[in-house]
């Protein structure tokens, strides 16, 4: 579904953060992306999410060359990718329900057509009772789950999650991992960026390790 070939990236005139990165994300796959802090995990996710252009190399997403996309095509491809940001990025003036419904709303869909779907998903991530609350009153773990629900609502083919367990206790982390595995079983390709060894030890999955700009794949 996604293919990176000899991708290199530098910010401005700085050193190359990523060098000769070559890998692919197959359909229905589950993988961890790991590496020391500052290694370039978030950078790689931004490349995957089309919010950053590589300095070198070729990125193909759903069969399209990422360098040759018009803005509207980028928006359309993004709707097929769900992302959970390290810092959640929920809108504080919208309720949990409205935040989760946002990806559908910006597609111009009528609220009546997705209300049941959003409510169901919110119950599934355990936020059924917190639906009409604004994000500032949510706990860290609740925000995390709201961000995950927002990434899932448009039924993406790929889910990218940046440190999804960075802000939660180990037991909630385990429950979130089960949620991602559940999603993976239902057919979504999942990529979780984390440096939480404990989390990775709980599930034997493919590992992409970034070290000093290079990416190694352990199947």
């Amino acid at each position: 579904m996604v293919r990176f070939e000899n991708v290199g990236l530098r910010y401005g005139m700085g050193p190359e953060v990523l060098r000769d990165v070559t890998f692919g994300i197959p359909p229905h796959s589950f993988q961890f992306l790991t590496g020391p802090s500052g290694a370039g995990k978030t950078t790689l996710l931004r490349l995957l999410f089309l919010s950053l252009r590589p300095t070198r190399g070729l990125i193909t997403i759903f069969g399209r060359d990422a360098a040759k996309l018009a803005p509207d095509e980028t928006a359309a491809l993004r709707q097929r990718i769900g992302i959970v940001f390290q810092d959640f990025r929920l809108l504080d003036h919208l309720s949990t329900y409205e935040n989760v419904a946002l990806p559908l709303r910006v597609q111009g869909r009528e609220e009546a057509t997705y209300r049941a779907e959003v409510t169901e998903l919110l119950h599934w991530v355990g936020l059924g009772e917190r639906m009409h609350v604004l994000p500032p009153v949510l706990s860290g773990g609740e925000k995390q789950r709201a961000a995950i629900a927002r990434a899932l609502i448009s039924r993406p083919e790929i889910l990218l999650a940046d440190e999804p367990t960075g802000n939660v206790d180990p037991s909630l982390a385990r429950r979130l991992l089960r949620l991602f595995l559940e999603l993976h079983k239902s057919g979504t390709s999942v990529l979780i960026a984390t440096h939480d060894i404990g989390l990775m030890d709980q599930f034997d999955a493919r590992r992409l390790v970034i070290n000093q700009g290079r990416l190694t794949v352990y199947d």
Binding site: G126, E129, L179, L183, S186, G187
Partner: peptide, 23 residues
Amino acid sequence: MTGRLRRPGAAAAPAPAPERAGK
């Protein structure tokens, strides 16, 4: 792609629901 993401029923859901207990 429709129906690909089948959400499990409440009983099967491993989802965390700490605050769901009757409040």
